[in-house]
Design a protein around this nucleic acid. Sequence first.
DNA 1: CGGGATCCGCATCGATACTG
DNA 2: CAGTATCGATGCGGATCCCG
Lengths: 123, 123
Amino acid sequence: MKPNAYSADCPTRQILDRIGDKWAVLILILIRDEPMRFNALRRTIEGISQKMLSQVLKSLERDGLIKRRVFATVPVTVEYSITPLGGTLAKAVDHLRDWAEENLKEVTAAQRRYDAQKTSKAA
Amino acid sequence: MKPNAYSADCPTRQILDRIGDKWAVLILILIRDEPMRFNALRRTIEGISQKMLSQVLKSLERDGLIKRRVFATVPVTVEYSITPLGGTLAKAVDHLRDWAEENLKEVTAAQRRYDAQKTSKAA
DNA sequence: CGGGATCCGCATCGATACTG
DNA sequence: CAGTATCGATGCGGATCCCG
């Protein structure tokens, strides 16, 4: 990627790469209410592989958005919770959620219109 | 993807898949001020292939977020502009941008801390 | 229970060539 | 100018096995 024109090093790009990861945002939203354990997350999301999960969790922790706490119980217990910083991001994401819930049907309608027009042209 | 638990059909997921596409958001932000032509976009973003560009543009148009207008000039002229719906999404994304600009350095700092700790452990 | 390591398919994306 | 079609690399992400 060449940082010539409208790109690369701007914060927008950075954050987009972050929230672009749908799993990340999903996890963020999930644990922001209450801390969750690894397998709890896995079961709740159900569709994510443990590889992805562990990977995304690590990335989120690295960014300081979530916090990992290990309890030295007999079978190891690990708990993931949101950080204040992560909380603010989750809050920002809420706006997107609101938009989504408000406009998704309109988007879907637009898609149907578009597809209908295309297929009629194809015929 | 199995739609068992916390997933798949919820609007959040849908919209995340959309804004997850960094190009899409970038384009949205770019053309929201003024309409742009294909190659203008390509030159401005500089880093996107024309395949990606045309693909993303089509997708955005399908979602009703941007509008494509063709002028029957001698060399064909195509202009992309934002729709009202797209405008509202761009607005929602602004909150993310604000968050990004406000907190990116904190995130970066967290990353450095994390990496430093890891490498010291590795040593 | 909470992961790391590995193998591998499949979709994504870039580069190139061609069209209207 | 504004794309479409094709090919080829690469890397994401799933499945599996294994360990602390």
